[in-house]
Design a protein around this nucleic acid. Structure first.
Lengths: 253, 253
DNA sequence: CGTTCGCTTGAGCCTTTTCAACCACTGTGG
DNA sequence: CCACAGTGGTTGAAAAGGCTCAAGCGAACG
């Protein structure tokens, strides 16, 4: 699946040092020299919106970290019903280690840049770097925690709470990403990376219901609809309450 | 939380060699001698049905493997709504490593025997035994996969499919456990370890709906109700179809 | 022998889905 | 330049699946 090395890949050693994975992701466990060594077996690849990154049941050929963009992980039922089971943001990982089969479809939601490793290189990398393995282990444990939180949403929350939960998650994500770039503390407005249909698929609803609940949140003044893909949130705490979110710490997706 | 060492614990070295955890669980990664050494810092503890094992948000004091019984992991919303996010069976683990807070309530569903370690001993054990850590890592990855499967159930399946899914999961579990003891290939009838209410909480339904769907499965001949807590399944494949389960391999809970 | 807990059943209601139509925007080709 | 198709988004009306509420049953247990 990964294309051959691009011209860009030959700049890898420099590029790697400023990568998001280096700063907060898996490469933060490495020394500068180790990163340089690693950069020789990694290569970047860009996926367009809707492009499939990994196919369910396929033998995994590569493993990757998300550098920019958003990846959705979806599962299908035999009759075509589908559910997004996770959204991946920069510093998250795509691929199922230690398995003969990929358990989901990974698809780019927006234009997405991945840092890819061949499976063999990746597994060697892990056994060579216990700290890296530890990082990935803890990341997996966090993912399990947030999956459990999402199960509460899917099992028990109302449609309005679900939509509020997703918007809260996305606005928090946006703040997080922004505070890394600039020191701007508040994000009044944020852009939606997802279609209504994708929101619905992640929330266990239909897209019509999502539309109606977004409108309901707007008419209650909890959010303001700027355009189809952009919203403002004046009071984050109000949104959190509307989401029936248990604790802020739960928000690690 | 763990009680002081019992008389039983002094027999630990012998007991450990025949334990489920030794055969298929985390201790399978150890030599007999390592197990003996480990048995000195472990101790067993029994929990009665409904007894709380770990409390959400508490600092984790111990970590344990399930030897016998069933443990349910539940999450609560502020207003009291609750969702069971996982069921643990023998050879599963209770406790969240590498975290300051337990992310859920762990409660015994039936009489349950745990093999407990103090957190400090446990973390030392992991760093001393890379194979053990690897085992736990892969176990966590499996748990994540099954959590994703359950998200599909909660987000997309009908009430009948949900109930069928749970029964299929439990009957498969029962077969698995039985084939370890005897070589009996088929389990026509199996006992339910859960109350209707617990089934509902795991399935994102109300218990009335669970009751009605069990009845519906019975009247379609997919299962037979022997008693309130015991069912028979003549054709496992029919049940699997009713459950809209994607693949048999998904069933690792 | 009464109480409690778990389970069952029924009736009506409500949230969400389904179905269908329509709108807004974008890119394409005549 | 405009007709056209295609995609994503919006709205309304009707249907339905599952929930709520209420009552009753049965086994276990003190």
């Amino acid at each position: 699946m990964p294309a051959s090395r691009t011209a860009d890949d030959r700049n890898a050693p420099q590029r790697c040092q400023s990568c998001v994975l280096r700063q907060t992701g898996i490469c933060s466990a490495l020394t500068a020299e180790q990163v340089t060594r690693l950069s020789r077996v990694s290569h970047h690849r860009t996926f367009e919106p809707g492009e499939v990154i990994l196919r369910s049941d396929d033998k995994p050929m590569f493993w990757a970290g998300v550098v920019t963009g958003v990846v959705k992980l979806t599962k299908l039922l035999v009759d075509g019903r589908q559910q997004i089971v996770d959204l991946l943001f920069p510093s998250d990982f795509v691929g199922r280690p230690f398995s003969k089969q990929t358990p989901y479809f990974a698809e780019a939601a927006v234009r997405t840049e991945l840092c890819c490793f061949r499976i063999a290189d990746f597994e060697k990398m892990l056994s060579d770097n216990p700290d890296m393995k530890q990082h990935l282990f803890e990341h997996t444990l966090n993912k399990l925690d947030t999956a459990h939180d999402w199960m509460v949403l899917l099992g028990r929350k109302t449609a309005e709470e679900r939509v509020a939960s997703l918007l809260y998650l996305l606005v928090t994500r946006a703040r997080l990403a922004q505070s890394l770039d600039s020191k701007d503390a508040c994000v009044p407005s944020f852009e939606l990376h997802l279609k209504r249909e994708e929101m619905a698929s992640f929330l266990g609803l239909t897209y019509e219901t999502v539309i109606r609940q977004i409108k309901a949140l707007d008419s209650q003044g909890i959010i303001t609809i700027n355009s189809r893909r952009e919203f403002s949130v004046s009071n984050l705490e109000t949104l959190r309450l509307a989401a029936a979110w248990v604790r802020a710490e739960d928000l690690t997706i």
